[in-house]
């Protein structure tokens, strides 16, 4: 088993390296000149050249890539062109704020999706099943900003003004000091992700409930609770883990739009600001970070898949 996990890990590292290459090339292709963006339209060519030299932008491309990669590997993400401070410092607090959103949405949507999917599968063909299916299909069809705006309309402004629609915490204070402002962003992300998990769980669970071993477990006289938790759910989790991973990975990117919508001080906001400011170092750092989350989440899903399947587990250890 460890060999397979190690192999997956090696593949992940290779993918991450490829991503770093792509990110670097993509930022090179970004329109506009960082030095000009910093100095403004009135800058003289001499001053631009001087700044380029100061930022190391006059070196050959491959050398700039190697310098950057070396920096990333040693924890130095470079200097923000806009704030002139180290990127790590700039992102530190924001990563925490975004993580609060991501983890909150991930936990709620995974637990909710699995429970709803199982419930729906157990009541296949009945009204509950059709209702859950219908609602999840409609919600899945809506883009995140529509859901976000709808939530703001319903829960923040006109109908029930309960939750704040923008993040109120003053800069410097952690966002979770006022938990109420987390509700709407987390709810939005949860609503985007849950339908997929629910539908997938319903499908695999239906299949598992029709299997011979679930019928056998019932014929052994086991209580229904044990049949579901011990004999059915563990087999449905494996395939669903892949979908959960894709959804959680999507969260890492989806957070950009949601943070923008709710003016939430996370990495999504930082990315949008950095792109506007041609702040190449910050764009590179955040893109790489999001890619990293993608890869790590998928790796975890693969490992969960291996762990829940003893056949795979045994074949691999051989």
């Amino acid at each position: 088993m460890f060999r397979l996990i190690l192999r997956r890990l090696a593949v992940s590292v290779a993918v991450l390296w490829l991503v770093s290459l792509l990110v670097f090339v993509a930022t090179l292709l970004l329109p506009g000149d960082p030095a000009r963006a910093i100095l403004g339209q009135q800058a003289t060519p001499e001053r631009i050249a001087a700044l380029n030299e100061q930022l190391g932008l006059d070196a050959p491309v491959w050398q700039r890539y190697l310098d950057w990669l070396g920096g990333v590997l040693t924890g130095d993400l470079g200097t923000s062109a806009a704030s002139q401070g180290p990127v790590t410092e700039l992102l530190g607090g924001r990563i925490g704020a975004s993580l609060v959103l991501l983890v909150g949405a991930a936990v709620i949507s995974t637990a909710g999706g699995l429970a709803l999917g199982t419930w729906s599968a157990l009541r296949r063909g009945r009204a509950v099943d059709h209702t859950v299916s219908g609602i999840s299909l409609v919600v899945a069809a809506l883009p995140e900003f529509v859901i976000g705006v709808a939530l703001i309309v319903v829960l923040s402004t006109t109908v029930l003004p309960v939750f704040p629609s923008v993040t109120l915490a003053p800069p410097g204070e952690p966002v979770w000091s006022q938990p109420i402002q987390l509700v709407l962003p987390i709810l939005t992300l949860t609503l985007v992700v849950t339908p997929y998990i629910t539908r997938m769980m319903r499908a695999t669970m239906s299949e598992v409930l029709d299997s011979g071993y679930v019928e056998m477990a019932r014929l052994k006289g086991l209580p229904e609770r044990v049949v579901i938790t011990r004999h059915a759910v563990p087999h449905a989790i494996g395939p669903v883990a892949q979908v959960i991973a894709i959804q959680l990975a999507w969260l890492a990117g989806g957070v950009v739009v949601v943070e923008f919508l709710f003016r939430y001080p996370g990495i999504g906001q930082a990315l949008i600001d950095a792109v506007n400011n041609r702040d190449v170092a910050v764009v590179q750092a955040i893109t790489l970070l999001i890619a990293g989350v993608y890869i790590v989440v998928n790796l975890i899903a693969d490992i969960v898949g291996i762990m829940t399947n003893p056949k795979l587990r045994a074949e691999v250890s051989r």
């Binding site: 299997s211 011979g212 071993y213 056998m216 014929l219 052994k220 011990r230 003893p310």
Partner: peptide
């Protein structure tokens, strides 16, 4: 009925490969 199943009346299925829980 659940109390009867497995204790008083037991079942032996056609396809043992499909009827044994592969993860237990």
């Amino acid at each position: 009925r659940r109390a009867l199943r497995g204790s008083t009346v037991a079942y032996i299925p056609q396809d043992p490969a499909a009827s044994l829980n592969p993860a237990l």
